[in-house]
Computed example of a mutant assay.
Amino acid sequence: MSAEHYAEEQNNEVEILQSIYPTELEVLHTTAPQKFSIVVDVEDEDEIRPCTLSLTVEYTATYPDELPLFEIALIPNAAAAAATDIEAELDSKDLDDLTAKLRELCEENLGMAMVFSMSTGLKEAAVQRLAEKTARLKRAKEARIQKEIEADQAKFIGTPVTRASFLEWRTKFDVETKAHLGRLAGEAGEDRAAARRAAASKKDEDRRLTGRQLFEQDKSLAQSDSSFIADGDVAVDASLFAREDGQPSDASDTE
């Protein structure tokens, strides 16, 4: 096939593409090798985050019998990004993968006009990639939420009791109970001993009476002392002395 024939085929394809993409296609080189770009809007209702790609194609001398040169780029689109809260979006690795897929598509269509197939194939592959990334993000988010729910629920659920864990708890409980009862018994014993000491002390105090108290309580003591009075001793009148409590004696009261 002559160079003129290749050029004619290429011109015919460009004209067809301009009719299909009246606003999306932009011719960059009008002379050979012809070069143009097509804007590809990637959207699929509410399932993915919309984005815009550009497919730049440059014919080779013997296209379509050989693959064209092409490049895929992501066009920033703030309006499309703000239209949804879906987080998945294309990155540089995704563009490399899309380029590889598009090259495989071109090899399958070698010998035929292929730019329209490249444009539609790019859109389909981009939609599929975004859907896969969105699904992964949703699963990860749901798993994270589920873990948070389970963590909250675990706060209200005790540790499952097994026979081994119960026996371990029972042994520890018995040891602590015995120790506690021992402390209580010791404290009670100390209290009883203190009470006994206090009672004994009070009893001793009650027993320690003054000489006057002994004299007043036991009149026989006065009689026993009379045996020691010798001839010529002077009798003492008890009424002449004040009582220990500051009151006059019984003898003075009777006068």
Rank of each mutant, 00 (worst) to 15 (best):
N11S: 13
N11T: 12
T23M: 11
L25R: 03
L28N: 06
A32C: 06
P33R: 04
S37L: 10
E45L: 06
E47V: 10
C51R: 01
L53R: 00
T60N: 08
D65I: 01
D65R: 02
L69E: 02
E71P: 00
A73I: 05
L74V: 00
L74N: 12
P76C: 01
P76G: 02
A81H: 06
A81Q: 07
A83F: 03
A83D: 07
T84D: 01
K101C: 05
L102I: 06
R103T: 13
C106Y: 01
E108F: 02
E108I: 02
L110N: 05
F116P: 01
S119Q: 03
R129Y: 02
L130H: 03
L130T: 00
A131T: 01
E142S: 06
R144P: 00
E150P: 07
A151G: 10
K155F: 04
F156N: 12
T159L: 07
P160M: 05
E168T: 15
E168S: 13
T171E: 13
T177C: 13
K178T: 08
A185P: 07
G186H: 14
G186W: 15
E187N: 11
E187C: 09
G189D: 14
R192T: 13
R196W: 14
A198N: 14
A198W: 15
A200K: 15
S201R: 15
K203R: 14
R208I: 09
F215A: 13
F215K: 09
E216M: 09
L221T: 06
D225C: 13
F228Y: 10
F228N: 03
D233M: 07
A238H: 13
A238I: 13
G246E: 07
P248Y: 10
S249W: 01
